[in-house]
């Protein structure tokens, strides 16, 4: 277990226009290097919670934030967004509105320019981030000429270049085709595995990504209702009742179990299911 990189205590938030809290009494501890998936039905407050991780809430959105939240040792309420942005990178849903420069590399450089990093250092880190996310060859292209999947990888490169300890991604693949989504998930996984970056991923499509996660958090109506090992969370009764997008492999496991066929532990992907079934059949 590493050190707590994000810690929220009794966190409750109400938007300036809201009459009731978007989330309530959230208690959460995330350790350095963890890969966390947050899921839950639409409107349950996932996006709102993510906005607290880099100070967009309360500094950009206003409203009332009660309780405590510390990110990378910084009190979110006390520190401006640009201070927290050095530690936490944010990737949003719509790739189109995250890229505003006229070339890919200029976009990736944007954050570093804002931080006043010297030019040679910017160049080095931009190239590094572009290579890791697999968009180095596109560096001179205009962002609006790229596919959604490519744009989203550029957006990831843009936050990666700032060398954050945490990257938060809010449904990064919801506008992207399945192949593009798969590539994005691979990039995200390698950021966590190879670079040790803490990942917080909000996602509905759990089939492709669950196997990489250390922990899964399920929210409903502004509260965290499940928080634990993905295999336990996904096989739980609550997850099914809320309508979490449980991977088909896990559903298959449960269906077989109901028929009295016990596989050795719930699988999270079709590869794992295949292995477990092959194992069970060879017995």
């Amino acid at each position: 277990m590493g050190l707590a990189i994000i810690e929220a205590k009794d966190l409750t938030y109400t938007y300036p226009t809201g009459d009731r809290p978007a989330f309530k009494d959230v208690n959460l501890k995330i350790d350095d290097g963890e890969f966390i998936i947050i899921t839950g039905p639409s409107g349950c407050g996932k996006t709102t919670l993510c906005r607290c991780f880099n100070g967009l809430i309360p500094h950009f959105y206003g409203g009332r934030l009660e309780g405590e939240i510390r990110v990378c040792g910084l009190d979110v309420k006390e520190n401006p967004i640009h201070m927290i942005a050095r530690h936490v990178g944010m990737v949003f849903q719509n790739p189109e509105n995250q890229l505003f420069a006229l070339s890919v590399e200029k976009d990736v450089a944007f954050g570093l320019e804002n931080l006043g990093v010297p030019r040679e250092e910017i160049r080095r880190r931009v190239d590094w981030a572009l290579k890791i996310t697999g968009v180095y060859d596109l560096r001179h292209r205009a962002p609006h000429e790229l596919s959604g999947g490519q744009q989203q990888r550029v957006a990831i490169a843009s936050v990666l270049a700032m060398n954050p300890e945490v990257i938060v991604l809010d449904e990064p693949t919801s506008f992207i085709d399945p192949l593009g989504a798969e590539q994005i998930f691979q990039v995200i996984n390698s950021l966590n595995r190879d670079l040790g970056i803490t990942i917080i991923l909000v996602e509905h499509r759990l089939d492709l990504i669950s196997k990489y996660a250390d922990r899964m958090i399920v929210m409903n109506e502004g509260r965290i209702i499940l928080n634990g090992d993905p295999r336990e969370v996904l096989t739980s009764e609550e997850a099914r009742l809320i309508g979490v997008g449980i991977p088909k492999a896990t559903l298959l496991y449960k269906a077989l179990k109901a028929k009295g066929i016990n596989l050795n532990g719930p699988p999270l992907s079709s590869d794992e299911a295949y292995k477990l079934i092959a194992e069970a059949m060879s017995k």
Binding site: N54, L56, H59, F60, I81, H82, M83, A85, R86, G89, M90, F92, N97, Q98, F100, F110, G111, N114, L115, G116, S158, V159, M162
Partner: peptide, 10 residues
């Protein structure tokens, strides 16, 4: 929102 998240005005 994106600009803020990339340390605009740091």
């Amino acid at each position: 929102e994106t600009m803020e998240s990339r340390a605009w005005g740091a």
